[in-house]
Design a protein around this nucleic acid. Structure first.
Length: 580
DNA sequence: TACGGTAGCTCG
DNA sequence: GTACGAGCTACCGTAC
């Protein structure tokens, strides 16, 4: 392997002269906690340059100009890009081999795992956590640094080939930077590769939190939960937060017949406990309601602690996994900002002088499902701007849509979601009860289901197709609407995956379009949170109106690119804190 | 005392 | 025959 170590400016200039000839740079960095130490870069052929930032203070400035015209290939680029953002370094576009590996379905996606997957050989990673702050780097450290870039060239070729197998091609995406520079055709891969850069920005930016509001709420909750727990212990001699003790008490002391979990523990979750809220024994009623109240408040308290634990100067920097789920949805951690209870959303806010602009896709999964399966009735109801839940309710009750009660509509909402994804009659009845408090007999559930599938025959045909494929092949091969392949082993997985996966693509594409528009307009706006069908943006107060318009437009545009028959709608609001 | 599994709850 | 996808905390049993 041919590498050149560079620690002087004239040599750097010479190297960059050579490097400027290629459009694609294969890169990696070695870092200390605070800073970049080495920047390794190579073209598709030729030597690997190892640039030592410790000895060339001007290196960042030289690289900054050239890299803004290059497509960079790297493994887990979000990591490197966050360092780049610190120095205002912006590559032209990106191709991430870790994301690529996840997209083709590999479970273990470290550089060495992916290398091993394609070559069968082992990549030595011993030097990875060596000290990159020392003055004199060892030969082994330099060899290791160069090798990481060397393997990228191979992985890039292999992954590109795999990603472009049977691509779904969408013209407008072919004009993107990713498609042009890397000659990539597959739509989902284009979106995911471009999105890496946006996600790095989101993590780097973080989001403001209202520390005093958190403290205030925390104290209020603490005094309430402590009182409940203490009273509970005095009355029943049980730790209220122990489901095990509670279950034993209910079953053995109060002689209540309790359901058991699969592992034979006593089930004490809220939906079970709620069954006893109308128990004839006042003691039981009081006990249950105290437990439910305690759990609710305690959960909120925990979430406040979780957020507070990651606070740095009134801001948090949650991590996002770009391919966080099998379907391609993101996940969020440290803290998880995708499951903050509605009651607590006001703890996330815009910084001083700024405001949040919040965009939501309206009923996006239903729209995707209608489009995906091509259900004519569903498509026509949605595109006429009618309320699909009300429509379903009117079909089932045989009433005029305008006479549908709130309860009937809620019921139909449960049916629309559940039945599309293969929910059973039994589950439908349970779901209706738990989520909407609607009692439903098994017979009602069955009739509900029959009418639903008789009306939405596209959905019916789609389900039948899945069942047949599952019967004959034992698994189902599906694709998102941008072409990401997904394999399912159960009927319900096969019904869910492509819809949820397409939703994830739609959100990412919307963020890309929005970011592009913001860049063109030179408005001061940053995406600060993403929650599956929602985009949260922080922007200067006096630019909020303009940013709102761009966000709404970007979301609809993304919708029109991904869906071909169904209109996509978005609702955008402006608020200082994150409230819907 | 450390760790993994489970239950429970939050979000979409 | 089966709605799906996540992350975090506390509890609880087990291993050391």
């Amino acid at each position: 392997m041919n590498y050149i170590y560079i620690d002087k400016e004239p040599e750097l200039k010479k190297a960059l002269e050579h490097l400027s000839k290629g459009n694609i740079w294969f890169i990696d960095t070695e870092t200390t906690p605070k800073d970049i130490r080495l920047f390794q870069v190579a073209l598709e052929k030729g030597p690997i340059y190892i640039i030592d930032f410790l000895y060339i203070k001007s290196a960042k400035d030289f690289i900054k100009d050239i890299i803004s015209t290059k497509g960079i290939v790297g493994h887990n680029l979000k990591f490197d890009l966050k360092y780049f953002l610190k120095y205002d370094i912006h590559p032209y576009t990106t191709f991430d081999t870790m994301i690529g590996a996840q997209l083709i379905g590999l479970n273990r996606v470290s550089l060495s795992n992916v290398y091993n997957h394609f070559t069968g050989e082992v990549l030595d990673k011993k030097e990875q956590f060596s000290n990159w702050g020392v003055k004199e780097l060892t030969q082994n450290q330099l060899l290791y640094a160069a090798k990481d870039v060397e393997v990228l060239r191979l992985l890039y070729e292999k992954l590109k080939k795999e990603l472009d197998k049977e691509p779904i091609i969408i013209d407008i995406l072919q004009k993107s930077r990713v498609a042009n520079v890397f000659n990539l055709r597959s739509s989902y891969a284009i979106v995911e590769m471009g999105f890496v850069q946006e996600l790095a920005k989101i993590e780097y930016t973080g989001i403001s939190i209202d520390q005093s509001e958190i403290e205030k709420q925390k104290q209020a909750l603490l005094s309430k939960t402590q009182k409940i727990a203490m009273d509970f212990y005095i009355n029943y001699r049980i730790d209220i937060s122990s489901p095990k003790k509670l279950g034993e008490f209910l079953e053995k002391k109060l002689k209540i017949p309790m359901l058991h979990t699969q592992k034979d523990n006593i089930s004490t979750d809220d939906s079970i406990l709620m069954e006893y809220l109308d128990n004839e024994d006042k003691k039981v009623r009081d006990l249950i309601s105290k437990v439910l109240e305690f759990r609710k408040l305690h959960k909120l308290q925990e979430k406040l602690e979780e957020v507070l634990g990651y606070s740095q100067n009134e801001r948090i920097h949650p991590e996002f996994w770009q391919i966080g789920t099998i379907t391609g949805r993101m996940s969020s951690l440290k803290p998880n900002v995708q499951n903050i209870p509605r009651e607590l959303r006001n703890i996330l806010k815009a910084k001083e002088g700024y405001t949040l602009v919040i965009g939501d896709f309206s009923q996006i999964e239903l729209r995707i499902a209608a489009d995906y399966v091509g259900d004519e009735i569903m498509i026509s109801v949605i595109n006429k701007g009618e309320d699909l839940h009300r429509f379903t309710a009117s079909i089932i009750t045989n009433k005029d849509p305008k006479d549908i009660t709130k309860e009937e509509r809620q019921m139909a909402k449960a049916a629309n979601f559940g039945l599309i994804y293969g929910m059973s009659e039994r589950s439908l009845a349970i779901y209706a009860k738990n989520s909407y408090g609607v009692e439903m007999t098994k017979e009602e559930a069955r009739r509900f289901r029959d009418v639903f599938f008789h009306t939405f025959q596209g959905i019916k045909a789609w389900h039948d197709g899945i069942k047949k494929e599952l019967r004959t092949k034992g698994e189902v091969h599906t694709k998102t609407m941008l072409g990401k392949p997904l394999t399912a082993h159960t009927f319900t997985d096969a019904a869910n995956y492509p819809i949820q996966g397409t939703g994830a693509e739609l959100l990412k594409l919307a963020v890309l379009i929005f970011a592009q528009e913001i860049k063109k307009s030179s408005l001061d706006a940053s995406v600060v949170n993403l929650i599956h069908d929602e985009i949260v943006v922080e922007t200067k107060k006096d630019q909020a109106t303009e940013v709102s318009k761009l966000l709404e437009k970007a979301m609809k545009k993304a919708g029109s690119i991904v869906l071909r028959h169904v209109n996509v709608e978005s609702e955008v609001i402006t608020n200082n804190t994150w409230i819907k």
